[in-house]
């Protein structure tokens, strides 16, 4: 029970209060870049969840190995290479064996290698000292939080299209101000988390 409660707490924190985009500012490029249409935003998010979970599953044992050999200093370099290789591998496998899934997700995969949210979640799992199950839950939570932020923001942007925006604010500035408002709404979750778990 205690264990489940801890895991649910990690999951909700990663999705809502510590949202990787809106609170930790990781993965801002796709957040601003591919959030203009709902379906592209969702495709990107599913691919991110998938890669985050996979990278965590693969880097966790590698990190244990590095720590046991006293070579923690190789973490960054090893992780980024593993993530890059993994993304390539998944792309090749999907293309060959599951073309349907490839046509849905494959196109987003190469962009994810340089997405700082993926490397971020792997490094933060280690910083927090999470075990394997906790790390996986945190990664999936981070991915779901990414999806939630993308989902909300693409809705906001679709509406913004039709509005008459002052000329100097058009484009990126108004997008950032809108992101600021979405971020304010996420601040409200702090109280919810606090009252569920105390």
């Amino acid at each position: 029970m205690e264990m489940t409660k801890g895991l649910v707490s990690i999951l909700l924190t990663a999705i809502l209060t510590n949202n990787y985009i809106l609170a930790k500012f990781l993965g801002i490029c796709p957040f601003l870049g591919v959030s203009k249409k709902l379906n592209t935003a969702m495709g990107m998010s599913v691919a991110v969840i998938f890669v985050m979970a996979l990278s965590t599953a693969v880097t966790y044992p590698i990190n244990t190995l590095l720590v046991s050999r006293d070579m923690e200093y190789l973490q960054t370099i090893v992780f980024i290479l593993v993530i890059a290789a993994l993304v390539q591998l998944v792309e090749i496998i999907l293309k060959k064996y599951i073309p349907a899934l490839y046509s849905a997700l494959g196109i987003y995969l190469p962009l994810i290698t340089t997405n700082c949210a993926v490397l971020g979640v792997v490094l933060l799992n280690i910083d927090e000292g999470y075990g394997f199950v906790e790390s996986m839950v945190n990664s999936v939570g981070a991915g779901l939080g990414f999806m939630l932020a993308m989902f909300m923001f693409s809705g906001v942007r679709e509406r913004m299209e039709a509005n008459d925006i002052p000329k100097f604010m058009r484009g990126l500035p108004i997008t950032l101000v809108a992101a600021s408002l979405v971020s304010v709404s996420f601040l409200g979750f702090a109280g919810i988390i606090e009252n569920i778990f105390s």
Partner: peptide, 21 residues
């Protein structure tokens, strides 16, 4: 707080765009 970060960046971009134009 995070919203302030987005907001300041937005305003800064607007100013720079205005200057560039």
């Amino acid at each position: 707080l995070p919203p302030g970060g987005f907001f300041v960046f937005g305003i800064l971009m607007a100013t720079v765009n205005k200057l560039a134009e």
